[in-house]
Every structure is written in structure tokens, then in C-alpha cells.
Write a protein that binds this DNA or RNA. Structure first.
Lengths: 339, 339
DNA sequence: TTCTTGATTGACAACGTTGTCACGAGAGCA
DNA sequence: TGCTCTCGTGACAACGTTGTCAATCAAGAA
């Protein structure tokens, strides 16, 4: 690899002068600059990050720690969002996933420390409370899609309450009154918040919320889930007073509702409106008809997490609380106003 | 951050001695070792990677460059596989995605060089031929899910020919004779190879391959695709002599076939067998009934790519050709033997 | 006893970079 | 002319680590 020294030798100037030119430092004689720049070009000089970091003590590497990427594929968007934000400052991302193993996670934290990462985004796959016990990074950690149990760390999370509200309101505005709800695992923060949002929408619309139409589409515990939305939806749709619309906790659940409806000869959206959550385009755009859903703003969450981390420490105190990111409605063809 | 110097001062030994203990170097007096180790513990010393790298010239960072992660979500598994392999040697992964923008890609290559990455995995989202014009990494690059047009770089790719063969054979063995095929974009290497594999299976089984039953489920060009599998399947299933089974180029396409079948009152697998490709569990395990499919071994591809890169240069020549990774059949409930 | 050997330890340099300080040359001023 | 001032440049140190070599010491050999 070419070093400043080599370029300096070729250009007949001192190392420092080359360094100055590379870094757009104080004024350098135009002629010198031009000559050196030519040599930089020819030799294809690229600064050595390790040396820079050692000298300056400041790192351009950030870490992203995640508990498990595998399960919800579009969480990649958190990574993409983070990278988009880092890119502006020529920073880079070291990615690590613990797959939920505490030993592994401890090892990864050490790795981050070895690389002296400038900050860490801790991304959870599910919106939930999480305790990151990592004193070494106390002041340079941002939680994405989860939040600190004791609220002492900045965190960027989806506005699930409003997301649930959006789902319900969308259907209520279109005249639906009997609305089925197929939920996720109740332990998830998301489930609780969205439930609250839906109730708020019902209350605002002056519609009685029928608890009996709210059922779990997933059984088992986190990590060992079993989807039962197909059966649940089928049951619901065979009842005498069947719902005219179903709110799903996930596009995945919506997918099963589609097949349940099809099995009963009900077509969407004519006989049944369905609204999803997540906007996994792999599903929402593939379903037929395409699924109206509320998007989980993973990209934006990743972007903001880095943004908060890059902010001067002084401002950080302001953002020490949770930052909510809106979940936008994505309108497609799975809902119909009630005649 | 704690340095060797600080630990040495506390322990009353030289820097070098501490270094030796940290690195399990030559014999050190047991008593000294114990004492120093205690101090290392207490001060929570973690070696500075940048300094090590500068001193030794060897980097423990690898790069992963990808053209676009966004589209096919389970490609994350390439990353996971790569990380699994790196983990054994305490190496780490710097991830970059160009989103297909050449300028951005050039910038990312510079970034990799600045970090002096030890090697690069270039992962494409689609199995295809690709030219990585990156002289600086000439000898430390491995292609994953794509291969060098001029064949001068090691590449790890799925064995699509055998994948197609597996799909067809599975159905043929179960007595199916009229088999519909819904394919991907013909420009993809995968499409061509799988087609060949299927023809091979038909030939082996002595069954006439009916070209008229092979249709595109996706129209448009890469990046601007439009799924038409629903319509295509519907059409196919309404013909007089309709197929008893359909082979799909993707689980996503299979999803649309499911809905087409449902719309026509055909139930799976009673009236129609369906086999997919990819094993995106998000789809294959959510469909009802669950989808029998052939898995794209992304994890294994990522793992092997790193493995090849970590191999001593001497052996590299041996693996200069393409390495094919088997696509295993994942049997679920969407196929039935023909009575 | 004296010499040799091996075990244990430390001093020093170097990796590539940049901050600090200083030097020389020419310009502007008295 | 002699002074200061500015501009452009370079010498040097330091960041934290490890490879090289040498120094010290105790034990065993002659």
C-alpha cells in the first residue's frame, strides 16, 4: 500500500505537505498542490484508516448490534437507513448479531471496543424494552426499535400506538363496524400499544369495541412462535355475525387471512377488507389483491439512530427520551368501503 | 481507553511483558502472569485494533460488498453465513451496499482500501455473471451468488441446474406428468440453469417436456419487475388439459399460484401440487398449506465465501473455479402424489 | 569456583498519520 | 537599510502495539 512517505519522496516534498493536501489543510502553494495531487493520483494513494485513528483517537467506525436478524427480513432496512446516514460523513458500519446468545453478545461488545467504535446502534428485532448493560458505551449508544427499561438511553421506535390507530381509523372511516383483530404475541410492546391505538380510534368514532373479535394469531413464546391466523380467521369468518374487515398484526398474518377467506369462498376486498402491518413488500405486493398495510419505518429508524449518535453530546440530553417514528399507511387494494 | 502502558505501570512490569501475556506469547513466569492478568481484568484492558493493525500490517476486517440488499430479504443469510465463518478467527465484517450505483460502489471500494480489509466478498442479489473491476483486490476477492465473466475469480454459487432438476424430479417421481412451469426473468443465469435441470429430469423420466406449459411469471427488466404469476397460473389452470402440478421459480410466485388456485376453487395439494424455490420461510411457512420448496443456500454460500478467502493463497488456485452449493429440497405440504 | 545455558524480562524501533513548533523567504513598512 | 509579518514548508514527536535484540539472573556443567 502506498504511504504518504512514498508520495512525498516521488513529489520531492515533505510528508507533512502531502498530508496537508490530502486533508485540504491550510493554504499550500498552488503549484506544489497540483504536482502532489498528480502524484497522489498516479500512485493511487489511499489514507490508512488505522494510522489515522491511532493518531487522532477518533474512529469513523460505528457498530450495529442486533439480537437476531434472521427472523424479520426487512429489518435489513435498519441497516440500510443507518448506512445512508453514515455515508454523509464517510463513516462505516461494523455489523454484529448475537443471535440472542449472551456470551456471543459479550464477545461482540469486546470486538466493538477493540475497534474503538465511535458509537453503537443496538437494534432489536421486536419493539420491546431492553436493558443494554454496557458501561463502556454508556454515552454513545442508541437503541433502535427497542428502548431502555430505565429510560436512560436515547431510543428510536416506531409509533405503534398511532400505527394501530391508523389501521382502525382507516377501516372505520370506510364504514366498517364489525372489525376483527388478529394480534401478535401480547408480550410485545407493539401489541399493547397498537391495541391502545385501535381503542382510541373506536372511541373517537363512537363505535363499541367488541373484545370478542380480538384474537391471537400467533401462539407460543418469542422465538418459538406458531402461526394460527389461518385457523383463527376461518373461525371468525364462519360466525353468524362475521366481521366485514380484519386488522392484522403483521402482513404475514394477513397472508393467512387471505387463504382462510379464499377457502371459504370470500373474496377480498368484496366480501372482506384486510389491513396488514409492516409492509414487507415481499408479501404486501405479492398478495393478490395487493395488501393495504401500515409500514414499519425501519429505514427511517436506522437513519435517525445514527443521526442522534452523530449529534454533539450537548444536544443529546434533549433526545434522551424516546423518539417516535410515524408508521405511514400504504394504500393498496385489500380494503373496500362498506356499501 | 486503557493501554498496555497503563497496565504495565500498575503491574510494575514492562509494556512488552504485558503484551506477551495478552498474546499468550513465550513462557512468562507464572507469578508475573497471574499478577498481570489480574491487572488486565481490573482495568478491563482491550487491545487496540488500529494499533495492532498498523504494527502488523495484517487486518482482521473483511468487507462485504453487495449490489442491493433491499430486494431479496433473505440474502441477509449470506451475511450471517459470512459472519459465522469469520467469528471463528475473531474477524469482523464491514458491510457496504452500493444499491447499484457505480459511483457509490467506487467510493465503497476506496473505503475498503482505507480500512485495509483483508478480503472482500462480493455478493450479488441474483445469480448472474458479474465483472468486478477492482485491481486493488485482485487476489482477495470472492464472489458470492455471482461469478466472474472471465472466470478468473473464485465464486460460490447455488447449483441452480440441480435445483431445477430437484424440483422436476420430485414431482415426476410422484407421478405428475403434466407439469406447469412459471419462470423468472430469462436474463438470469438461474433461470437458464434451472430450465436445463428440469429438462434433464424430464428426459431421465422419459417424459415429454411440453414447452407450452412453461411461462414467465415475471415481466419487465431486472429492478422493474412486475409479477404476473397470478394471471398466468389462472390461465394455465383454466385450460382443458390443465397441469396437475406447477413448478415455480420463486416462493413469491408460488404465493400467487396459491391465490389463483383458490380463486378457481382448486385446493392445494388435492387438486394441484405446487413447488417453490428459495425457501423464504416468511412465505413458505406462512402459506397454507405450507410450501414444499427448494432452498437457496444463502447461509452456506456466505460461509464458504469467507472460508475460501481465509485459505492460504497456495490453495486458492485450486478453488479458482466456481464452487457449486447444493439447493436442498424442503418438503412441506403443498405436493401430493398423483393417485 | 568459573563458565555455559536457559529462562525471564526489558529497551528500542517501527508501522502511517497528524498536531506543534520552528524555519526561511519574500513582502510591506518605517 | 533594517525591521516585522505572512506564507509556505518541514522536522519531530506521539498515538498503541509488537518484533528484534540484548540484559539479567539462577541453575547446572566443567
Amino acid at each position: 500500500m502506498v504511504t504518504l512517505k512514498q508520495v512525498a519522496a516521488r513529489a520531492g516534498v515533505s510528508i507533512k505537505t502531502v498530508s496537508r493536501i490530502v486533508n485540504d489543510d491550510v493554504a499550500v502553494n498552488a503549484k506544489t498542490r497540483e504536482s502532489v495531487q498528480r502524484h497522489l493520483q498516479v500512485l493511487n494513494y489511499i489514507p490508512n484508516n488505522a494510522a489515522r485513528q491511532m493518531r487522532s483517537g477518533a474512529s469513523t467506525i460505528f457498530g450495529l448490534m442486533t439480537d437476531a436478524v434472521a427472523t424479520t427480513p426487512y429489518s435489513v432496512d435498519i441497516v440500510r437507513g443507518a448506512q445512508a446516514a453514515l455515508r454523509e460523513n464517510n463513516q462505516t458500519l461494523l455489523i454484529a448479531s448475537s443471535d440472542g446468545d449472551p456470551d456471543r453478545e459479550a464477545q461482540l461488545w469486546r470486538m466493538f471496543r477493540a475497534h474503538r467504535v465511535a458509537g453503537v446502534v443496538y437494534a432489536s428485532m421486536f419493539h420491546r424494552s431492553h436493558n443494554v448493560g454496557m458501561p463502556a458505551f454508556e454515552n454513545s449508544i442508541v437503541l433502535a426499535n427497542c428502548f431502555a427499561a430505565n429510560g436512560d438511553k436515547p431510543s428510536i421506535i416506531p409509533d405503534d400506538e398511532r400505527g394501530g390507530y391508523t389501521q382502525a381509523k382507516y377501516l372505520l372511516q370506510r364504514g366498517h363496524r364489525r372489525i376483527g383483530i388478529i394480534t401478535l404475541i401480547p408480550e410485545l410492546e407493539a401489541t399493547r400499544l397498537r391495541g391502545e391505538g385501535m381503542r382510541r380510534a373506536f372511541a373517537e368514532a363512537g363505535v363499541q369495541f367488541d373484545e370478542s373479535l380480538e384474537r391471537r394469531g400467533v401462539i407460543g413464546v418469542l422465538g418459538g412462535e406458531l402461526l394460527v391466523a389461518h385457523a383463527v380467521a376461518r373461525e371468525m369468518l364462519q360466525e353468524r355475525n362475521r366481521p366485514t374487515a380484519i386488522i392484522c398484526g403483521t402482513d404475514q398474518l394477513a397472508m393467512q387471512v387471505y387463504s382462510a377467506a379464499a377457502a371459504l369462498g370470500l373474496s377480498i376486498p368484496e366480501h372482506l377488507s384486510v389491513i396488514g402491518f409492516d409492509d414487507l413488500r415481499l408479501i404486501s405486493e405479492t398478495l393478490y389483491p395487493q395488501l393495504t398495510t401500515v409500514a414499519l419505518p425501519y429505514f427511517e429508524i436506522g437513519r435517525r439512530a445514527v443521526e442522534v449518535m452523530n449529534r454533539p453530546a450537548a444536544e443529546t440530553s434533549l433526545s434522551l427520551q424516546k423518539q417516535l417514528v410515524t408508521c405511514p399507511l400504504v394504500e393498496r387494494n385489500s380494503c373496500k368501503p362498506l356499501a
